[in-house]
């Protein structure tokens, strides 16, 4: 059994159904990407997993580490070892770097020490007491990842972590993802529009189109199959 098993997931909003039977799985210590165009349902899938206010889940099953995710409230998900780094980072803007991390540590069942996590992010070191709103996008992204890491997750859901970041920061985020996967045994499910990032860090890739998984490919296949990328990803 995989760490995360999603089958026949159907979900949507008041305005209409978005996911029409999504099947995917993530194994322990695996980095998997979920690719697709804008509106394909990537973020909807992420939000369904963590029990966000929207979308509503209509059907299917989501099992994480043997637990039924649909039976848990959104504030219970992180205790199971599943943690979301959301699109747009969502750092608490008026809270300092340390407060953002302390909050995560306060409410996690088995948190990693804040200082230990900060050591992994030297960029954040001299901004500990700075409100997160005064930081650059790349720094905020690192804070969002650090905040998730403090909860000591088994699986980290990363929703477009490289969106709007300069290329050299994208490289840094890629190396952070590899580091937490290899050294801290955190599995990663990565949502990306940027295929290059997915190719750099993930071993396996799901391609989501119009609310369904249409392909599951290896990194080599994704790299070589120009037609596939053209058809579903527009690159």
């Amino acid at each position: 059994m995989s760490l995360l098993d999603v089958s026949e997931l159907e979900a949507g909003y008041e305005t209409g159904q978005v996911l029409f039977g999504v099947d995917l799985s993530v194994d322990e210590n695996e980095v998997v990407s979920l690719l697709g165009r804008n509106g394909a349902g990537k973020t909807t899938t992420m939000h369904a997993l963590v029990g966000a206010d929207v979308p509503r889940v209509f059907g299917g099953s989501m099992t994480f580490n043997g637990e039924d995710l649909r039976a848990h409230r959104n504030y219970q998900i992180s205790d199971l070892g599943l943690s979301l780094v959301p699109e747009g980072r969502r750092c608490f803007r008026d809270l300092t770097v340390k407060e953002n991390l302390r909050l995560a540590a306060d409410h996690a069942g088995d948190p990693l020490p804040v200082e230990e996590v900060l050591d992994q992010f030297p960029e954040l070191d001299d901004m500990r007491d700075r409100p997160s709103k005064n930081m650059s996008g790349g720094e905020q992204q690192m804070l969002a990842i650090a905040r998730s890491l403090v909860t000591n997750p088994k699986l980290m859901l990363l929703d477009e972590p490289c969106e709007g970041l300069a290329p050299y920061i994208v490289r840094r985020i890629e190396s952070i993802i590899q580091e937490i996967n290899e050294k801290q045994d955190v599995s990663v499910l990565l949502v990306e529009q940027n295929v290059a990032v997915a190719v750099a860090v993930a071993e396996r890739h799901y391609i989501l189109d119009e609310g369904e998984i249409v392909e599951e490919v290896s990194t080599a296949q994704l790299r070589e199959d120009d037609e596939l990328r053209q058809e579903y990803l527009g690159v």
Binding site: R73, Q76, F92, L103, T151
Partner: peptide, 9 residues
């Protein structure tokens, strides 16, 4: 919601 994702009831 973000606070809830981090485990705050």
């Amino acid at each position: 919601e973000m606070a809830e994702f981090l485990g705050v009831n």
